[in-house]
Computed example of a mutant assay.
Amino acid sequence: MRIRKFKMNESGLERFFGPLEAKIMDILWNDVEMTIKDVQHALEREKMTNFNTVMTVMNRLVEKGILQKRIEGRVSLFKPILTRVEFLNTQSKEMTNELMNEFGNVVVSHMLDALEDVDDDLVAKLERKIKELKKDM
């Protein structure tokens, strides 16, 4: 599953999805399987949108390979293909690889500069990872 558009000016899930898609994914990542009506009811609490719109967006998420659809009797059940953590890991890894392939040293330099603003645990984790990589060389 590959997200084609990453929106720099957005935050959270809306960097990867449209606003309604992000809300639907947020709902589905908090449950096991849900029907369109279940998701619509969860969105209604936020006064969001109607059944047909939710159905269209959820079916598009199936087409994009984000959701899995299973039919049970006359009901369609939906669930994310990946967990939230798996999805974010996959997307961040793909973005990092693309940046490295296209911009190489510049990206590494900016990532190192960004380490000045993070906690010591992350820096220690990076140091361990670098040591592991050097052992394998």
Rank of each mutant, 00 (worst) to 15 (best):
M1N: 01
R2C: 07
R4T: 12
K5N: 07
F6Q: 09
K7Q: 13
K7F: 03
M8Y: 11
N9C: 10
N9K: 09
E10L: 02
G12P: 07
G12K: 01
L13Y: 05
L13T: 02
E14T: 08
E14H: 05
R15G: 08
P19V: 03
P19A: 08
P19S: 10
P19L: 02
L20Q: 04
A22E: 08
K23H: 12
K23P: 00
I24E: 06
M25K: 03
D26K: 01
D26Q: 06
I27K: 01
I27W: 03
N30H: 14
D31L: 10
V32F: 04
V32Q: 15
M34W: 10
K37V: 12
D38R: 00
A42M: 04
E44M: 02
T53D: 09
V54A: 06
V54D: 04
T56S: 12
V57T: 10
M58D: 06
N59G: 13
N59T: 04
N59H: 13
N59C: 03
N59W: 01
N59M: 06
L61M: 09
L61D: 00
V62H: 04
E63V: 15
K64I: 00
I66D: 00
I66F: 06
Q68D: 12
K69S: 14
K69W: 05
K69F: 12
R70S: 14
I71G: 06
E72M: 11
V75G: 03
S76Q: 09
L77F: 11
F78K: 01
K79D: 11
K79L: 14
P80C: 01
P80F: 01
P80H: 06
I81W: 02
I81V: 14
I81M: 12
T83Y: 11
T83C: 03
R84V: 04
R84G: 11
V85I: 09
E86K: 03
L88S: 00
L88N: 05
N89S: 13
Q91V: 13
K93S: 06
E94D: 07
E94W: 09
E94N: 13
N97Q: 12
N97R: 09
N101D: 15
N101F: 11
E102P: 05
E102I: 08
F103Y: 15
N105I: 11
N105Y: 14
N105P: 00
V107F: 14
V107S: 05
V107W: 10
V108P: 13
S109Y: 10
S109D: 15
L112Y: 07
L115I: 04
L115R: 09
E116I: 05
E116A: 05
D120P: 06
L122Q: 03
L122C: 03
V123N: 08
A124W: 07
K125P: 09
K131V: 04
K131W: 12
K135S: 15
K135D: 15
K135E: 15
